[in-house]
Simulated scan of single mutants.
Amino acid sequence: MTGRDSGAAADADPATTRHPVAELDDVTKEYRSGGETIAALADVDFAVEPGEMVAVIGPSGSGKSTLLNVLGLLDVPTSGTVRLDGDDVTDYDDEARTMARRRTIGFVFQSFHLVPMLTAVENVLVPTMFVQGDQTPRARALLERMGLDDRLDHRPDQLSGGQRQRVAIARALVNEPRLLLADEPTGNLDRDTGRNILEEFERISTEAEVGVVAVTHDELVTEFTDRTVELVDGVIQ
Rank of each mutant, 00 (worst) to 15 (best):
M1T: 09
T2E: 09
G3H: 04
R4G: 13
G7I: 12
A9F: 10
A12W: 09
D13I: 02
D13P: 05
P14V: 05
T17H: 14
P20C: 12
P20Y: 09
L24Y: 04
L24S: 05
V27D: 01
T28C: 00
K29V: 00
Y31K: 08
Y31F: 15
Y31G: 03
R32P: 02
S33V: 08
S33M: 14
G34F: 09
E36V: 13
E36S: 11
T37H: 00
L41N: 01
L41R: 01
A42M: 02
A42G: 07
D43Y: 00
V44I: 05
F46A: 07
E49V: 10
E49K: 15
E49D: 15
P50C: 14
E52V: 05
E52S: 08
E52A: 03
M53Q: 05
M53H: 04
M53L: 10
I57E: 06
I57C: 09
P59M: 07
P59H: 06
G61S: 04
S62R: 00
K64R: 11
S65A: 04
S65T: 12
T66L: 00
D75G: 01
D75A: 02
V76E: 14
P77H: 01
D87E: 15
T90Y: 05
A100W: 06
R103K: 15
R103I: 11
T104S: 13
I105V: 14
F109E: 04
F109C: 11
Q110S: 06
S111D: 12
F112S: 09
F112N: 01
P116R: 09
M117Q: 12
V124S: 09
L125K: 06
V131D: 11
P137M: 13
A141I: 10
L143M: 10
G147Q: 06
L148M: 14
Q158R: 07
L159K: 03
S160V: 04
G162Y: 00
A168L: 08
I169F: 07
A170T: 06
R171D: 09
A172M: 08
E176H: 09
P177V: 08
R178N: 14
R178M: 15
L179H: 11
L179N: 07
L179I: 06
L180C: 14
L181S: 04
A182W: 02
D183K: 05
E184G: 12
G187P: 00
N188R: 09
R191W: 13
D192W: 13
T193I: 02
G194R: 06
G194W: 08
E199S: 10
E202Y: 06
I204F: 07
I204R: 10
S205W: 02
S205N: 03
A208M: 12
V210D: 12
V212N: 08
D218H: 07
T222N: 03
D226T: 12
T228V: 15
E230T: 15
L231M: 14
V235K: 05
V235F: 08
